[in-house]
């Protein structure tokens, strides 16, 4: 991103700025698996692609990439597709297994528990669905249904509760409503997002 003369990032709300707002506990393993679905990659390539798409200001540590890949390997979700030994240290190339593809599919289709600042995990899921040729619109609809299910429970609780219950439920309802508006807007902009993430 171009910087101003003072070295301060310009406050432009772009896709790359948005991805900086990701949640810390996003599933790194699933994200790396999703990236591998496009084709086999070396650990270094995986890290670079991850940082480019999801971790602009918080790049993934090399150690985290390799520990995650070891875990995925142990669980049979990836396999070593080849080893290059050139002049430097050995470089393993990883490929996703059928079990890995199933695991990514299950993660993407599972709605997240509605909670504040969920948008970053959802954003990641939407991008990965687009990258892997899955139905991002269905993912958004599934999440929408899950949000509305919780809103119904809160609305019901509010109807039966006292004023304190009503206010607490209202607070949660307004946050969920904001999430839902984001889901609707994202659904309306999927084509635009698909063009950008596949560039």
């Amino acid at each position: 991103m171009p910087q101003s003369p003072e070295g301060i990032r310009p406050a432009i709300y772009t896709l790359s700025v948005y991805t900086q707002c990701r949640v810390a506990d996003m599933s790194i393993g699933h994200t790396l698996l999703g990236l591998l679905e496009a084709g086999p990659r070396h650990g270094y390539d995986l890290k670079r692609t991850f940082d480019e798409k999801f971790g602009h200001d918080r790049p993934l540590a090399y150690g985290q990439v390799y520990s995650t890949m070891s875990r995925l390997l142990k669980n049979g979700l990836v396999e070593v597709d080849g080893v290059e030994s050139g002049g430097g240290p050995e470089r393993k190339r990883y490929a996703i297994t059928d079990a890995g593809i199933t695991d990514v599919g299950a993660w993407l289709s599972q709605p997240e528990k509605p909670e504040p600042y969920l948008h970053s995990t959802l954003y990641t899921k939407v991008v990965l669905a687009l990258l892997t040729g899955r139905r991002a619109d269905e993912l958004l609809d599934t999440q929408r249904a899950e949000h509305l299910r919780l809103m119904r429970i809160l609305t019901q609780r509010k109807r039966k509760g006292d004023i304190a219950d009503q206010l607490v439920c209202d607070h949660a309802l307004f946050h969920l409503e904001a999430d839902l508006r984001w889901l609707e807007l994202t659904a309306a902009r999927l084509d635009q997002l698909a063009r950008e993430v596949r560039r």
């Binding site: 609809d141 929408r144 249904a145 949000h147 509305l148 809103m151 119904r152 809160l154 609305t155 309802l173 307004f174 969920l176 409503e177 839902l180 508006r181």
Partner: peptide, 22 residues
């Protein structure tokens, strides 16, 4: 309005003239 829809038992979404039972 989703907060109004939360008073319903279920939801149908209409997009481009097609409906989807959520």
């Amino acid at each position: 309005e989703t907060r109004v829809a939360a008073y319903s038992d279920r939801e149908i979404v209409v997009r481009d003239g097609k409906s989807r039972d959520m």
